[in-house]
Every structure is written in structure tokens, then in C-alpha cells.
Design a protein around this nucleic acid. Structure first.
Lengths: 232, 232
DNA sequence: ATTTTGATGTGTCAAAATGACGCACTAATT
DNA sequence: AATTAGTGCGTCATTTTGACACATCAAAAT
């Protein structure tokens, strides 16, 4: 038993892990193996240990429950509504990640009866306020992808211009003109040309690209990019 | 005494409140009246009550310690390093706010021996990891001001184009061409023309503007603005 | 008293970025 | 046999951006 002079909340980390299949955004969920909400789907996550940071907690829980590891996680919001967990006062730090679905085969861990991908828009009923958490993560995505070149984390190492466009269209909920899209993407100077694909798409062998991390690092050292509408 | 089966962290909220004096960005700090770090300067903030959200906590503590209230607060990061508080394990949710300095006269509250503004870059030694917190808030500012029209919260209701430009220059750490700046700001359609100022600046009576909240709301209902470099 | 500094108003022009769009080809699907 | 989807290639008008000059005069500095 641990005693405190004042009541303390429990602290958890929850992860919204996004994947992409060329058409739709997906979210990684686990089936809860324990009460409360046993049998319901939920975000991977769990209680913070007293000697770890929330970041360490998020990575640990994600690995334990789904097998997914070595990924880029980013805090995006704290959910602290008073009644959000029926057991006790629980404050959660929500994280957001983008991964290549093909990089992982999912396992079911400790507290999770199973882990699997769900299409956004076809989510099952979720435990706690996890629907709200996913909603907010989804809203942050466009902004995040405008700011940092993290969209590439959702695609294979090498990708066609069409695949990249599909991703941006899915995230931003629009369509782009194919030629203008390619022109603008190329003009960033961050796409390394990987030559022609060995596998045909429809009729041609499309050119492939990869994200040029070095070029990005070199460039972002230098300057801040201006932007609209208050970028001046 | 409150007992738990597992150790729980204490939870706090800390506020980085920015002000602007026409030249420099300022931060609102309090002088701690209690141990630890008694006598040191620190961010306004404090322990979350068990029946309030972190947002409510941030607003309450800010009001108690400085008298500042009714302002826009936004979560920006959770700081959870294990040793960041000498008393016990404390996880803090950091908030960021922009206010008109002239709107408030500071009071010294409960746990605070005093509250006052400090120029960024001339900060005193701070308690805990509050320097890191301010650093991160400062880094978020440009991005935040590009995304939302919150810069206006730092200026008086009516402001000259020059004042607005100074603000953007201070936040982004650059200079802009006066005419191009005005052209672009005006083109947003979010500045209401408030006519000529009754007080002279140097030689002329500059035109004044105010932020047109209605125009902004009406516009942002409609569409997402595209941006660089991954805005496509 | 004189000089310097800073804020203001007013427009132009070349370069760059953007958005819209047409045509031809063919593998895979229907 | 017809349709669909992905690919390659490029143009053109419009919009946006960035750079820049001159005149004025109050306030501040010397």
C-alpha cells in the first residue's frame, strides 16, 4: 500500500497508432483481456510505473500489448475528465504514432486478448473515452503532416508518387491534381529518386521515390519555412 | 491519508503566460513562497485537485497565484522526468497562454510571494525544470501563431500595422518588409479597419486595425488552408 | 539648436508558385 | 469487348511573392 497526504490520480499512456493500406487510414486496437471493459476494443496503453516517464510507459505498453516497437511516438493531448475511468481517477497522456503496417506482425500480449488494425470510420465500440482520443489524433494528423515529413513513416521505404498522393488525400480528405502534386512534392527536394519499379502498375513501371532524411535534416537546420495564413 | 495499491504520481499544471510590450516577449513568473525552491522564481501552477481536470487546475492556480483569469490556455506538453521534483514523483501538464499585459494588474497570491513579468532572454534562475518548459513553449509559438490567429491576444484591441509586425518579428525572429507584410496581412481579410489613430506615432496618425473574429470563424468553417512544405 | 532616428503613406515590377487542363498508352479488371 | 486506373509528358493564364524608392515630419538624441 502506498499512502499520500492528498489524493493522487493514476497516470496512464495511450497510443493512437496509425497505419495506411493505400486506401484508408487504420488504427491499431487491442481487445481488452481484463475488466473494466473486458472484451471491448481499446487503444494500447496502460499504467505508468513510478520510475518511468510517460514516453517510456507508452513505448513499453505498446510493445507488451501489440509487439510494436521502435517507432516514433509523439504526445498530443492529456485527457483528464473526472469520470473517464470507472475504477479511480485516471489521467492519460495520449500519444500518436505513424507506422508501416507491413513492418509488424501483431501479437497479443499480457492484458490484451488480441491486437488488430481497424479502418478509421469502421471502428468498433471502444472502452473509456478512447473514441474521443482517436478523434483528436485524427484532427491533428493534417497539421502534423504539414509540419513534419512524417507521412513517409506510413509508406514502404520506396513508394510511387501515386501512393504518396493517396496518403495525402486520405489524411487531408481532398483530392489533388496528379501533375501538380508531383510537381510540388518533387520541388521540396526531399524525395530521392529510386528509379523505375520492377513491378508494373496497370501498364507502366512507375518511378519510385524514398524520403531523403539527410536532405531534410540539412535543410531544416537552416531556416524556418513560412506558411499561411498567419505566416507572413 | 489516501491509500493505493500501486504508487501514484502527483499531478500538477504549470502555465507559460506570454505577454508582449512592443519589443520583447515576456513571461509571467511568480516568486515561490514555500519550499522547495522558496524564494526562487517559477511558473504559476500547482497541484491538481482530485475532482478537477488539468485545465481547471491550470486556470485556478493561475488566478490564485497571479490574479490573471479569463484567458485562453492551451496544453502543449507533459513533463514527466522522474527526478524533476525533489518532494515526490510529480508529472506536470504544461499550458501556454497569450495575454495583453495591460489587461491585468498582478497580485501575489497564496503560495506566491509575488508575480511579475520577465523578458524572455532575461529570465532569472527558475525552480524545477521550468526553464525547459519555457523553452518548449517558446519553440511552439511560431507554429501556433501560424496556425491560429492568437497573436492578436498579445496586442491591444486596436493596433497599428507596425505593432502587429513587431510582434510577428519577435515571435519568428526575423524581419519583414513593411509593405509586403501589410499587403499580406490585409489580404487575409481578418483585419477590421478601425480608422485613424487619435494619437500620433512619430509624425503621422497611423491607421488602426482589430482582429475580425467573425470573419475568421466564418472562414474557418469552410475549409482547411493548405501549407508548406508538405501541404500539397 | 541641429541632427538623427523611426514611423507613416503610397506603388511598381520581375520572378516564382499555383491551379487547371489534354493527350496518348496499355495492363488489369469487368 | 469495353472500362478503369495508373503512368508519362508539358502548357498557359493567374496569383502570389519578394525586392525596392521617395517624401514627410514628430520625437529623440546629440
Amino acid at each position: 500500500m502506498y499512502q499520500y497526504k492528498y489524493p493522487h490520480p493514476a497516470m496512464t499512456a495511450d497510443c493512437v497508432v496509425f497505419g495506411f493500406d493505400g486506401k484508408q487510414l487504420h488504427v491499431l486496437l487491442i481487445e481488452r483481456g481484463l475488466e473494466p471493459y473486458k472484451g471491448s476494443w481499446a487503444l494500447p496503453g496502460g499504467f505508468m510505473k513510478i520510475d518511468e516517464t510517460v514516453e517510456q510507459c507508452a513505448l513499453r505498453e505498446l510493445k507488451e500489448e501489440t509487439g510494436v516497437e521502435d517507432i516514433y511516438l509523439e504526445q498530443f493531448h492529456v485527457f483528464s475528465a473526472v469520470g473517464r475511468d470507472p475504477r479511480e481517477r485516471v489521467v492519460t497522456v495520449a500519444f500518436l504514432a505513424l507506422v508501416r503496417k507491413s513492418d509488424f506482425r501483431l501479437i497479443a500480449g499480457d492484458d490484451a486478448a488480441g491486437a488488430s488494425w481497424f479502418e478509421l470510420g469502421k471502428l468498433p465500440p471502444l472502452a473509456f473515452d478512447h473514441h474521443d482520443i482517436i478523434d483528436m489524433a485524427r484532427k491533428r494528423l493534417p497539421e502534423l503532416m504539414r509540419t513534419k515529413p512524417i507521412g513517409f513513416k506510413l509508406l514502404d521505404e520506396k513508394f510511387s508518387m501515386n501512393e504518396l498522393q493517396r496518403l495525402y488525400e486520405a489524411v487531408n480528405g481532398t483530392t489533388y491534381d496528379r501533375r501538380n502534386f508531383a510537381r510540388k512534392m518533387s520541388s521540396t527536394g526531399l524525395l530521392r529518386d529510386e528509379g523505375v519499379s520492377p513491378v508494373a502498375a496497370h501498364n507502366r513501371f512507375p518511378n519510385l521515390y524514398s524520403f531523403d532524411e539527410k536532405a531534410y535534416k540539412a535543410e531544416s537546420e537552416g531556416h524556418f519555412a513560412p506558411e499561411n495564413p498567419f505566416n507572413v
